[in-house]
Design a protein around this nucleic acid. Structure first.
Lengths: 120, 120
DNA sequence: GATACATATGATCAATAGTTCATATGAAAG
DNA sequence: CTTTCATATGAACTATTGATCATATGTATC
């Protein structure tokens, strides 16, 4: 990053360049931040949250999830695709049906922390 | 919830109603799930993630954040508004400028867990 | 191998979100 | 009290997203 890129932009009584330099340096790389936002986007939809919550308690086939949430098989399938791409859920075939399950421990923590925040 | 609402929808070798009954019961109320999704939507944008990251290390005024991220003051201000509405950041006036800061401990945990997930 | 069942996928459409531009608010200095 | 500086806000435009509908894939059964 350019050393002198940050000129004082307002008359705050502290030295700006010091702070700005330091802050700018500890920033994770652009790509990681992008991936991180993408991950949280997944949690930012009620349907997907509900899916994660039901899988939380039991692995389930697609039609069961659809029945539980009162939604179309197609809608659920589309969302499961997204969840699987992000490695948040996994699946296995069992005869004609396909069983989905949570594949990651972080899911619980992330949802839990989110809940704590909104409960307050 | 209706006791007999869930008929078996596929020929999975387990009894569906048992599982579906149990899973349906431990679901948080609709409104909470909605709020939860709304909270995560906030983390689902690169700009807001970056803002949180810089505030992570130091409280800053609006124009400093804009300078750090190389973005318009207006864009930043709009996003700060959203972050403030969700109680993720707070602010205080200091002369002509307004200083923003992180107001919640969960922010660190949530971002941290997210990072852990994508690093793997 | 033809049919039925469970799931996946592609196209389409409505709704939502983020940036930009122009402008408004609000405190401080002269 | 007028001007200036820092920030906030509203409107408009584009891009993205989630549900629906129709259809494709793929496994099992006859």
């Amino acid at each position: 990053m350019d050393q002198d890129a940050f000129a004082p932009c307002c008359d705050v009584p502290q030295t700006h360049n010091d702070v700005l330099d330091r802050v700018g340096h500890d920033m994770p790389p652009e790509e990681q931040l992008y991936d991180l936002a993408d991950l949280f986007k997944i949690f930012g939809d009620t349907t997907r949250i509900k899916i994660l919550y039901v899988l939380f308690e039991s692995e389930l086939c697609v039609c069961d999830i659809a029945a539980l949430l009162g939604m179309t098989q197609s809608a659920i399938s589309h969302q499961l695709r997204i969840l699987k791409q992000s490695k948040l859920v996994g699946n296995r075939r069992e005869g004609k049906t396909i069983i989905y399950f949570l594949s990651d421990n972080h899911v619980r923590t992330i949802l839990g922390q989110g809940m704590e925040h909104i409960i307050e």
